[in-house]
Design a protein around this nucleic acid. Structure first.
Lengths: 280, 280
DNA sequence: ATATATATAATGGTTAGACCAAAGGTTAGA
DNA sequence: TCTAACCTTTGGTCTAACCATTATATATAT
């Protein structure tokens, strides 16, 4: 009875238990093609992964409780938990304890993306300069693409973001946030979600290593560029948009280097920082 | 006794057990800063992650067996396993069963990177065109950078790769491999490991969706470009290198589209395909 | 002696059932 | 009506086995 199989639960009188979507459970072999014994947790993970990605389980929906999944898949609860742990790491699930809790479908792919880059940094495989360079390679062309593809209305929204930032001259934190929002939206205008994801991730890491060391003076200087960039976008001057964005980022990069900012090399990757409980 | 603590094992007469590096074990709280109870498996994962990334555990080294880790951390084996599962998903560990087996430190960060992008594709959040576009944005500038930064010797190596490919006119598979190798090395010349990682990942996904549908005619046509690119690199003509690479990739992209190739949208992410065991 | 088969031991993979802890819902009391 | 005590659901953890895989050593046959 080591064979893993799906005991599709009598899909009928579940009247009592669930408010979660009654899920289609089934297992396929997953693992190396080389006749290796497929590991149960890999199969379960694979099965759930498929359901999540093919829309069988919509974003935000809750999976059945671990115990029921274990029953349904015909495996022990631990196998299910290991599968969930892997999926959680992949950014496909988010788990919450307690009564209202459970495993919820999410699409947080930026998380593993960021974790990987963080790991590369922490492991010394890449430098902060590498990150800045990548950002430049992504955002400058993105600005050009935005000038070509961006919808008028969206560009005007972007313009408003910049204008609102003008009024925040005194609030350093808000100004910084507004500038970030600008870059986020600018990249979004390029219309390539993959590009957006990457930029978002890179930006998040860079921002983290800033940690409020960005002074108002620099922020306003940056804002200056943003005005020009918006102008270029509005007039569809792609090459200008590209160049201005590149200058904006290069200037920022130089500031970083002058300030001798080192990356926040906490090997946290996915996990945020310290909780409340002290440990021996 | 719910407190998690490190019972650092008497680091002495382990003469019998280990050929693995005697690891420094210790746990910190990990989790949300908001006084939430830190989950044991997250703490263990965090602790190991730190050791791996800060070099306390070198690449290729083996972790102590799960049972010993559990002892050392003062938790159950299950907690350790869940932690390992997450780290495996992060590309930090690779686990092998059996006698010679164990959990080995690896730095396979391309794996989660690729998994994320695969998930985005499978979930319909991005398209194959988005991928091609990103590749173009990365590789074309990379070629320009290579022309500037690439060491003479490395460029000459690259030239040899192209020349050797000339002799493979008949072997479609080998020719394809040689062309891939060209792009890989080209990007490496740019001297940005992060860029290399990304390109590697994107390329791998694109290649997978090709699956031998690339005919010899197209391969040779591509090879033509490679010759020109190498020429540009040797003479440090950065802009030419950029333009030629862009043309090379755009041509390939158009071919893809004409052939109506759809991405291999198997929600496999990290896990390769079917094993030998049938299920239910 | 060499090669092949077989036992041994180390280690991950899995099971079973129990109990703890968090968090939403319900109900009783003020 | 509001509050506080319970109750239930669900994830988190523990224990103690046993199964499966594989490298290594040992024995056996050639």
């Amino acid at each position: 009875m080591s064979q893993i199989q799906d005991k599709k639960p009598a899909q009928g009188e579940t009247g009592r238990s669930g408010n979660y979507q009654p899920v289609n459970l089934s297992l396929q072999a997953a693992g190396d093609s080389r006749g290796k014994r497929p590991k149960a947790y890999a199969q379960v993970a694979q099965s759930i992964r498929r359901q999540v990605l093919t829309g069988g389980l919509a974003k935000g929906e809750r999976l059945p409780p671990e115990r029921e999944l274990a029953d349904a898949f015909g495996v022990s609860r631990m196998v299910v938990r290991e599968a969930i742990r892997a999926l959680e790491s992949d950014g496909l699930l988010q788990v919450r304890p307690g009564a209202g809790g459970g495993s919820f479908v999410t699409h947080d792919f930026d998380k593993p993306l960021g974790a990987s880059i963080n790991n590369l940094l922490a492991g010394g495989a890449i430098t902060l300069d590498n990150l800045f360079e990548l950002r430049l390679m992504l955002e400058a062309p993105a600005a050009a693409m935005a000038a070509v593809r961006g919808r008028r209305a969206d560009i005007e929204d972007l313009a408003r973001v910049v204008e609102q930032a003008d009024d925040l001259a005194d609030d350093s934190e808000a100004l910084r946030a507004a500038n970030l929002e600008f870059h986020r939206r600018l990249v979004a205008l390029a219309g390539n979600p993959l590009l957006s994801s990457l930029c978002e991730t890179v930006l998040a890491i860079l921002v983290k290593s800033l940690q409020g060391r960005l002074n108002v003076e620099l922020s306003r200087r940056v804002l200056e560029y943003h005005h020009h960039i918006v102008g270029a976008l509005l007039e569809r001057r792609a090459e200008d948009a590209r160049r201005l964005t590149a200058q904006d980022l290069e200037q920022l990069h130089q500031r970083y280097n002058k300030m001798g900012i080192r990356v926040d090399v906490n090997p946290e990757a996915a996990a945020p920082a310290a909780g409340g409980r002290e440990i021996s």
